[in-house]
Write a protein that binds this DNA or RNA. Structure first.
Lengths: 150, 150
DNA sequence: GTAGATGCAAAAGTTTTGCAGACCT
DNA sequence: AGGTCTGCAAAACTTTTGCATCTAC
């Protein structure tokens, strides 16, 4: 998402494109893995040294509403975010290096219909993540097992 | 899971069956929905008034390792737990009252295999939850929409 | 100019930890 | 008896909030 398109997207909702927001989006767009908020903050300060932690929290939440990023539920204690392309993305996350691969077709419709019939629920959402180890982390070098999310 | 079986399960790992652990398991087993830790604590004190919050945290984590309960990631800010029957359970959660229905067959093997081939990941786990509204919460009475998880 | 956004700092929570003493087996 | 577990209280964090100030438009 470039600067112009983002400004447009924000403008449609009466929101503004600020330096903080650009910094946070740049950080998350440039990362191949999921980042906790504190890490987003650390990186964002390199782009905009004056940014405050509260703005980072406010911005990741905004970006999540706009579906430009997605909150992940990892084994960690705190929330992580990862870049996303629209509504129907799910992620395959490497437990070694944090690499997050997005995939789209989750083919859960049939399961959902069966479940809905059986339980008499009206199902309106789901959450799904896969965990594993990426090829790089499996390739054997110990160092790659400990590499930080990039 | 009854008292004897639980003691056996714990004993196999050199762990002990204490009053606190019984209280926490009783609370979570008796609940039809997911509970946040603070709520588990509140209910557990009715069974064992002397129990401490730290023990509740330690115990839910232990029970999760034993796969007797499962952590859920809801829209809430803090972790919730729900009773579970073994490794392969997933949950359908009512966003109205918190009712959590467990279901077993998730039939994701084919999707997993395709993903693994395409991404060269070794996939070793997944996390899935469905959200919706249960029949009771949909039935129209306003009160049921606000009922606390039971 | 003005509404929206920010930074700061404090507050509100949740979760973890250290340790002396209690408890289970 | 001996190691496991607990309650307590403090600490460590994460996340939220209020408000004066700033800024994007």
């Amino acid at each position: 998402m470039d600067r112009v398109a983002l400004r447009q997207l924000l403008h449609e909702r009466g929101l503004r494109l600020t330096r903080s927001r650009q910094a946070v989006l740049t950080v998350l767009t440039g990362a191949s893995g999921h980042l906790k908020v504190a890490e987003v903050y650390r990186r964002a300060r390199k782009i905009d040294p004056g940014i405050g932690l509260a703005s980072v929290y406010r911005t990741v939440e905004l970006l999540a509403r706009l579906e430009l990023v997605k909150p992940l539920h990892t084994e960690h204690r705190h929330r992580h975010y990862v870049r996303a392309n629209g509504r129907h993305g799910h992620h395959l996350v490497c437990t070694g290096c944090g690499l997050a691969v997005e995939f789209a077709d989750c083919q859960l419709e049939r399961l959902m219909q069966r479940l809905a019939r059986r339980t008499r629920f009206h199902i309106d959402g789901h959450f799904m993540e896969f965990f594993g180890r990426c090829a790089n982390c499996r390739s054997g070098s110990r160092s790659s097992r400990r590499r930080a999310p990039c």
